[in-house]
Design a protein around this nucleic acid. Sequence first.
DNA 1: AATGAATGAGGATTCATTCAT
DNA 2: GATGAATGAATCCTCATTCAT
Lengths: 195, 195, 195, 195
Amino acid sequence: MPKLGMEPIRKEALVKATIVEIGRVGSLDVTVSQIAKRAGMSSALAHHYFGSKEEMFLAAMRHILTLYGAEVRGALAAAEGPEGRIRAILRASFSPGNFRREAVSAWLNFWVLAQSVPEAKRLLAVYQGRLQSNLVAALRPLAGRRAVEIAESLGALIDGLYLREVLKSGPPDGAVAVAFALRHLEAELEQGVGE
Amino acid sequence: MPKLGMEPIRKEALVKATIVEIGRVGSLDVTVSQIAKRAGMSSALAHHYFGSKEEMFLAAMRHILTLYGAEVRGALAAAEGPEGRIRAILRASFSPGNFRREAVSAWLNFWVLAQSVPEAKRLLAVYQGRLQSNLVAALRPLAGRRAVEIAESLGALIDGLYLREVLKSGPPDGAVAVAFALRHLEAELEQGVGE
Amino acid sequence: MPKLGMEPIRKEALVKATIVEIGRVGSLDVTVSQIAKRAGMSSALAHHYFGSKEEMFLAAMRHILTLYGAEVRGALAAAEGPEGRIRAILRASFSPGNFRREAVSAWLNFWVLAQSVPEAKRLLAVYQGRLQSNLVAALRPLAGRRAVEIAESLGALIDGLYLREVLKSGPPDGAVAVAFALRHLEAELEQGVGE
Amino acid sequence: MPKLGMEPIRKEALVKATIVEIGRVGSLDVTVSQIAKRAGMSSALAHHYFGSKEEMFLAAMRHILTLYGAEVRGALAAAEGPEGRIRAILRASFSPGNFRREAVSAWLNFWVLAQSVPEAKRLLAVYQGRLQSNLVAALRPLAGRRAVEIAESLGALIDGLYLREVLKSGPPDGAVAVAFALRHLEAELEQGVGE
DNA sequence: AATGAATGAGGATTCATTCAT
DNA sequence: GATGAATGAATCCTCATTCAT
């Protein structure tokens, strides 16, 4: 008797194991066996479910980006006012669920993957596009036509803060990162006001 | 007496080939043979001069960071006034020599390398430290005690802009990046004034 | 469910192939591929089961020493009287199963291995210790306190005869070797009597 | 101007370095570069003088066997009476010059070499032949027609004692070995007397 | 005489992937 | 569904040897 509904459970376990292993090793030089072992199954089964190592990586990317997207959406739903929406996006971006060592490590490696795997590039582009439109929507009432460029610089700053987390030791501090980004934003907005 | 003085020539060729290959493949999954072939020699010779693949990567990192450092130093030497110094740093950061596809790709991969190779981490930390102190020195007259935090956010922004170049197509446009960073900076400085 | 229970079969095939190849080449300069090919499998599988070439060598050593030990034990079980026990040990030592060209060659190479691999050294020491105590036990009733030194010299003689077999051509002649050792032994014992 | 008479000096340095390195590593897995470096020259020069690694090994063998032969000859010249001659041979065999760790190690490795290199086999056979005839000559007056077999067993015992030195720790003790061999010999001779 | 330069050949080891059961 | 078995294809690295100077 086949166990019913094993597939999603197995897949999820593999996706999580993939992220953990990438985070542990710090690169994509992770073997399917390592991942499968951590997920509690044989490497053959991992291939059975994903077809190839690359597909596992892509699934892991989707998982991380989906998680991020969900968190942002949730935060936005509870936010009020333009500024509140921006704060919500930032807080979600640096929430403990996203801004944790192994996720940051995986995320960085996905940028590398994007250089050689088109689908990975597409996924990152989608994520970036969503972030950008969310920011623009929230900024429009505050910054008018400057919303686009401010959004872009805020987005780049967020990515830069993620990147730099790699060199730091100790657990990531999301609050500090949010404060940084907010200060930057206020500066930009004040400038707009001053025009 | 044998042919002499080949070492520096070979090493330089290998370092350049390493960067080219990393840029071409988009990851550190380059074989020593590929690199050596592009540098016009056997892989055995590459090992003879560098001892290991990792050492070649580190040499390539040092090369890129040294190049960057030299360009910044040169630009600073010709700069006048605090603002001029900042512009110099930014222009050097996004100069065609540094802000080119293959160098950006290599640079991104070095961040990944830094997660598993301590020496790579150290090198990046040194580069980051220099950038920070250069920025702080230039910002001090303009922003007083806020110099440090502005420098940090400016640094993160620069890294973010580098990172995002990965998703773009076409040759990197340094001018746009500089403009972005400058706008951000002006906003930060104005804010200080408004306090 | 997959094909099962291959491990012991494969391992045994590899161990035997290792001995054959060492005997054929006359040194430890055998490639894993050669061994694996002779054992009828890929070198990758050999590594899968043994982890490393060195482990294969050690397994081959254990095999040879175990074989030897078993033969001695068997012969001792059927032996009667002190002299009978000694004859049994000698006959086992030079039995066709142990005293054959390829086993002698492998044995010699294991002595070399013992110089650089501690575990190999340990194995040889264990074998030597067992031989010594077996001999002493059998000699005690015949030679009293001289048993120890006679055993030692008999052991060294056995090893010397093995060693010298290397230079000979044609199949080893165990009978001659046994006769040699027995004559030596009788001389030693008579001397004791004469005291 | 070529340095005159460099060749023998270089060659000797290489031969000694070969023995040292084999002793150090405990096997013939020594690189020409290691040997050359220890001899204070480039590996290219080593090849210039010996043509190949194998030739270096053979030269080292000749060196060791020559040394041994010379010592035996010297000792024999000063010996008096049959028993004195035998003692001389044994003492030479286990003299500090021959019975030292690195020489024993090299000697063992040469037995291995003899299995695949005919010239090495020939050299060992020559050494063994000389030892045998020396022993027979000395034993004839004492043991008559039994001289041959006693010589052979004494020779095997010597080789066995050399071999077993490999497992021991601490510097070889020639005196003990000589005593061992002498006791064995006396036993053999007494037996002859008793016939 | 002497050596730095250079390489071809090879060898241990790894790994994604496939397959039979 | 699940996995042990199995391998081909790499890849890093080593090394004896050659050569130009």
